[in-house]
């Protein structure tokens, strides 16, 4: 199986590569095994889906387990539909690269019009150049009125609620799509109306399964709850070591400080 890969480096440059790799559908998303020479986050795009596999997985705790994404999109579309019926605008937030495209693809265009925030519009254009099909969206430029947005959905980068964007709505319901939304505290702290648990990372079960299936005897843990995960692996009879990095990696509360998932 050959896939077109789009690499997202930390310097945000985009690199197209072709890689041969094996994948299978599991837990409603794809489990992909890939050998990488450099530490980069990888966006894997195929005709059907957008997926981001990141080596800096941070959710090494059994509290993280995901529902199939079809269910999450159903929740999102129902919420949008409900808002539309009440003449409320819908604002859906997610990371600009990867998550935003995944969200746009999962929205049901029969409900209403889909607008994108400028950052996401620009990113979508780049992703489209890479040959990915995305549904028709309209840029949220200054010509769009409050009335246009009534019942419509806007996809915007996360953490943007304090900006001028909010003034463009008459009445708006705000949702955030992220793995961090699994925790009630994070949902409430974000002061959004809805939190959708949609992550580009492996969940606990997926992570453990991935390790089992690689047959790795030694696992280097780089980010997140490293001590905990190392201890867990050691107890399972695997060899594990923590690679010290300067950062502990992305954490829920730094969502609005960093765009890198």
């Amino acid at each position: 199986m050959e896939l077109n890969l789009l690499f997202y480096r930390l310097d945000t440059s985009l690199v197209r590569r072709k890689y041969a790799l094996s994948f299978e559908e599991k837990f409603g998303s794809f489990l992909v095994t890939i050998k990488l020479k450099t530490m980069v986050s990888v966006v894997i795009l195929n005709r059907y889906d957008v997926m981001l596999l990141s080596p800096n997985v941070l959710l090494e705790l059994p509290i993280y387990s995901w529902l199939p994404q079809a269910q999450i999109f159903q929740q999102i579309n129902q919420w949008w539909q409900h808002n539309r019926e009440n003449k409320i605008s819908t604002l859906l937030m997610g990371y600009t690269l990867g998550k935003a495209q995944r969200l746009t693809s999962g929205l049901d265009p029969s409900i209403g019009r889909i607008f994108t925030h400028g950052d996401i519009h620009n990113m979508n254009e780049v992703v489209k150049l890479a040959g990915v099909k995305l549904p028709a969206t309209r840029l949220l430029d200054s010509s769009v009125t409050k009335e246009d947005l009534q019942g419509a959905i806007v996809v915007a980068p996360s953490g943007i609620t304090s900006s001028n964007l909010m003034r463009r709505f008459k009445e708006v319901s705000i949702g955030n799509a992220s793995g961090w939304m699994q925790l009630r505290g994070a949902r409430r702290r974000g002061s959004t109306d809805r939190g959708f648990v949609l992550s580009d990372h492996a969940d606990w079960e997926g992570l453990n399964q991935a390790i089992a299936e690689t047959g790795a005897e030694k696992i280097f843990v780089t980010h997140g709850y490293t001590e905990v995960f190392k201890k867990w692996l050691l107890e399972k009879g695997l060899d594990a070591e923590i690679v010290k990095t300067k950062f502990e990696g992305e954490q829920p509360e730094t969502d609005d400080l960093s765009e890198n998932e």
């Binding site: 705790l61 059994p62 509290i63 699994q182 905990v228 201890k231 867990w232 107890e235």
Partner: peptide
């Protein structure tokens, strides 16, 4: 019930910050 060592459950609980929720999640 979750098949986890108690220490790992405790770690998870500290991250969640709410016992009822931590149990529901694991």
């Amino acid at each position: 019930v979750a098949g986890l060592p108690l220490w790992l459950f405790e770690e998870s609980y500290h991250i969640v910050g709410d016992l009822a929720e931590a149990i529901a999640l694991v």
